[in-house]
């Protein structure tokens, strides 16, 4: 299989990465090269094989319901691009 230029632009938008037409073109070439490598998987019959999502076969550990974190807003917002009145500012959110 190989990705069309349209698909490249669609996933770039899904991932919120701006791409110029030239970039999309080179990216398309690279991605198709990589997918050639990936396609080897399709030849393998994996029927009945349990997908492996984690490196260990363990179950989730649970935390007690307790408040352990103090307010560190000042420290956290010191590294923020834009804040005001304790809020993070972004271009107007339209709903």
């Amino acid at each position: 299989m190989s990705l069309t230029l349209e698909q490249v632009k669609r996933i770039a938008h899904l991932a919120r990465i701006e791409v110029s037409d030239d970039e999309a073109l080179t990216t398309q070439g690279h991605l198709n090269g990589i997918f050639q490598l990936i396609e080897q998987m399709q030849a393998v019959d994996t029927a009945g094989v349990e997908p492996m999502a984690h490196a260990q076969d363990l179950s989730q550990r649970l935390r007690d319901d307790a408040v352990t974190e103090a307010d560190r807003r000042a420290a956290f917002q010191a590294v923020a691009p834009e804040t005001e009145a304790g809020l993070y500012l972004v271009p107007k959110v339209i709903e």
């Binding site: 834009e82 972004v90 339209i94």
Partner: peptide
């Protein structure tokens, strides 16, 4: 670009800021 790290110097809409 909302809570920390790089944010583009120039942008229009929210999506444009992300992209």
């Amino acid at each position: 670009g909302v809570r920390y790290g790089y944010r583009a110097p120039e942008y229009g809409s929210l999506d444009d800021m992300y992209m």
